[in-house]
Amino acid sequence: MDIPRNWRLRDQRYRLQGTRCASCGAHHFPPRPVCPRCRGRHVEPYRFTGRGRVYSYTVVYQAPEGFEQYVPYVVALVDLEEGVRVTAQLTDVDPEEVAIGMPVEMVLRKLGEEGERGLILYGYKFRPRIGDPKGEAESD
């Protein structure tokens, strides 16, 4: 990946920033110019809370190039509390402990590096929610 591209994506990667439709209130991640729900074009930036639950997950044993050193690692679909689903790695967790429905929260971590002299990429991952591991304080 090239430098301009990763720079462009900084608000998404570091802040989990998407959009919210000013017309119908739907949230989107990634940010979108057109709301998929109402087709409205009046969208504004929205920063997600980063709290959610695991919708599905996989433990990767055969990794794409650049991720070999991390195997086995967990990639999940996370349902954010705003009603949006994102794809991200889970971190600070044993693959055997991961379960569908597990409460998780966003953290900023290293995503990978482009070779020894290349760019180091940072971005969002999710870890089991601290202080409220079962998510019991929530009403969802």
């Binding site: 990946m1 998404q12 990767v60 055969q62 650049g66 990639v75 995503l111």
Partner: peptide, 13 residues
């Protein structure tokens, strides 16, 4: 590419 592959997600995954 920006939101799936960058997470280490292969097509199999």
């Amino acid at each position: 590419a920006d939101y799936e592959a960058v997470m280490g997600l292969s097509f199999v995954a």
